[in-house]
Design a binder for these strands. Structure first.
Lengths: 167, 167
DNA sequence: TTTTATTTTCAATAATTATTGAAAGTTTAG
DNA sequence: CTAAACTTTCAATAATTATTGAAAATAAAA
């Protein structure tokens, strides 16, 4: 396979996978592009490569910065902004985990806690509260595990995990 | 808060959270409803409670069955089908993890492997292949960790994790 | 300051995804 | 077998989400 063909396929595939996990396609493509770029890219570079509008580039680059996985970079002698993606994949994984935890898990815990204040003591109410409580417990456990994973080092984590589970 | 109000809020909230993670709103609401139901529900029950069409109920119940988190249940003397959700939340977590692994992680590994076959040996090609390779490594590690988590028991997993990381 | 380059916003529109509902398909009862 | 009960499918449509592009805002240069 030719390099350009492979790069293209990689960017397209990343975009369509993202779509199936509820992530904006363009956002994923911009990130994919920055990940394999050997130099910082400007908005124009991205517009041209991905064939998308300026507004779209702007919105999605901001979103990536917001996720903490892309940074602005100044190029001396240039007035416009350039962007780079952090190439450390373990850091990338940790950052995404941290954000998803904040965006997906923590809101669930908050809502579940808010709902626990049902006064009734009928069987039905008790069953409902049990579901909420069980959901809270599992969610809290998972949240705790992810917290640990975020703080851990890749090799250490994996080797410990392997040891742990080898029976 | 009144029970019905709390149930309603819970179902609505579950639906809107799901939306933000790329899961169909109705699918999440149907699951939420089944989780807190003390008895099996028919398509009519679901249609009526969530105010949605028969076709919509059918599609989303099938999807939940496909995810392995809802089952058909026969009620004696009744001709129509009833549905129940598995109430064991740790099992639910494991099942969802297993499915997301299959749907989100494994396709990534497949694609990354397919792209590695770039022939060029320029610096650019080498950098590209390094990104793919690093992505594969992290993805494989995470995949392995999730495999272990799926097989583990809740309390055992959490206590080991806590021990592991307590320094 | 004014001019020019650049970024941001956002209403309009396009593209995608979800939902309806009625027809077709299936299964069970009589 | 036929009729009735029930489930599934899917084209039409509604609802949602993403994208464009030009105007407004901002920042740097002259």
């Amino acid at each position: 396979m030719k390099l350009d063909e492979a790069k293209n396929k990689y960017i397209q595939t990343w975009g369509s996978l993202a779509t199936s996990w509820g992530i904006n396609k363009t956002m994923a493509q911009v990130h994919a592009l920055l990940l394999i770029s050997t130099k910082p890219l400007s908005a124009e570079d991205i517009m041209e490569t991905l064939q998308i509008s300026r507004g779209n580039v702007n919105m999605n680059v901001r979103a990536l910065i917001d996720w903490g996985i892309v940074q602005k970079e100044l190029v001396i002698g240039e007035r416009k902004e350039f962007f780079v993606a952090n190439k450390d994949m373990w850091e990338l994984f940790k950052q995404i985990t941290k954000e998803r935890k904040k965006r997906e898990i923590e809101p669930v815990l908050k809502i579940l806690a808010d709902l626990q204040i049902v006064e009734e003591t009928t069987d039905e109410a008790t069953a409902f509260k049990k579901v909420l409580n069980d959901l809270s417990k599992v969610t809290t456990t998972v949240n705790g595990i992810l917290d640990k994973a975020i703080k851990a080092d890749e090799h250490w984590l994996l080797s410990n995990f392997t040891k742990m589970v080898k029976k």
